[in-house]
């Protein structure tokens, strides 16, 4: 659906050149929530803005939908492309002198006449994001979370197939973050949209993303299923980002070097409710020492345990119950 191939982007300011993207390649699959994470200045915004043609690039190609190398599109095709992509921002970017309704209609009214069916659609969307009471209010009257909801309603007015989110929750408090993320998740499944979300917060990735791309200094340093990256991070940057949400079982492993016979266990969603550990413990009369336990975004479980004795039997038994066991 979105395919970025070997793209490099150079910013030129006062004779100085700055490589914001260096030979970046990335595929984003239809109907997924794809997170892009990295420290400030890593090039995340630059990358996401490639997708709807807000950013040009020097090398490589960006293909979106059926359009190849979107930088070469003529004005009309470029407009068609943008209509099929919605966008929301960290600072909401609402028009202060327009009401909620007028803001939501803006993508239509700026390019032509608003038809009665557009008006109805706008009202439905405002309803969907839970702001029907505020339809004729001005943005300054709203809280941050409410403003972002207006942004979300506005981004949906043209029935987009892709929704780009550049740090949509960075200006919000924790409770509001959760509710905005839940809304995005709902919208994704309701409208079958592909969501690309830029953030510097692992929590956002953990909450809603299927895939994650980690960026550093204009390069992609890690990319894959959230599960895989979370439990087998390779790069130091990824690991330090993960430890910010407590997902640092490597740290646990390293800090408990003196403890022998440590194993990492991965549980599938289907077996999460059964008391496998207890059963195995009782069966082999061995107390299994749990050093770390957590649950992943897709509701898989992960544990770091110490097995003092009967190791082979216990391993076998666990694996038979569907648990993935890794030695560390």
């Amino acid at each position: 659906m979105i395919s970025i191939n070997n793209v490099s982007k150079i910013y030129k300011t006062n004779n100085k050149e700055f490589k914001a993207l260096q030979e970046v390649s990335l595929n984003i699959k239809k109907n997924t929530i794809h997170g892009i994470i990295g420290e400030s200045g890593a090039g995340k915004s630059t990358l996401i803005r490639l997708i709807n043609g807000l950013e040009d690039y020097q090398d490589g190609t960006v293909d979106v939908f059926e359009y190849k190398n979107i930088i070469k599109l003529n004005m009309e095709s470029s407009r068609m492309l943008k209509k099929r992509i919605g966008m929301i921002y960290q600072s909401f970017n609402l028009l202060e002198r327009k009401t909620v309704l007028e803001n939501v209609l803006m993508p239509i009214s700026i390019n032509g006449k608003v038809k009665p069916k557009d008006l109805q659609k706008a009202k439905n969307l405002i309803n969907l994001v839970g702001l029907s009471e505020y339809i004729n209010k001005y943005p300054n009257y709203l809280s941050g979370g409410q403003k972002q909801r207006v942004g979300i309603a506005r981004s949906l007015i043209n029935d987009p197939e892709i929704l780009l989110c550049d740090e949509p929750t960075s200006a919000l408090d924790p409770t509001t973050i959760k509710s905005v993320l839940d809304l995005l998740k709902d919208i994704k499944s309701k409208f079958n949209i592909t969501v690309v979300i830029v953030t510097h917060d692992m929590y956002v990735i953990k909450e809603i993303c299927d895939y994650v791309t980690v960026m550093e200094n204009g390069k992609i340093i890690e990319n894959g299923y959230v599960e895989d990256v979370f439990y087998h991070p390779v790069k130091t940057t990824t690991k330090s980002l993960l430890s910010s949400i407590g997902l640092n079982y490597e740290l646990i492993v390293n800090n408990n070097k003196h403890i022998k016979n440590k194993y990492i266990l991965f549980f599938d969603k289907s077996i999460l409710n059964s008391s496998i550990i207890t059963e195995v413990s009782m069966k082999f009369k061995t107390s299994i020492n749990i050093l770390y336990a957590s649950i992943t975004p897709n509701e898989k479980g992960v544990m770091v345990v110490q097995i003092p004795k009967n190791i082979e039997d216990i391993r076998h038994s666990l694996m038979k119950s569907g648990v993935v066991v890794e030695n560390v």
């Binding site: 807000l54 470029s78 943008k82 966008m87 921002y89 970017n93 028009l95 993508p107 390019n111």
Partner: peptide, 13 residues
């Protein structure tokens, strides 16, 4: 900056 970017993302001229 923000306003122009928003307008451009709507495909406006």
């Amino acid at each position: 900056k923000e306003l122009v970017e928003t307008g451009l993302s709507f495909g406006a001229n």
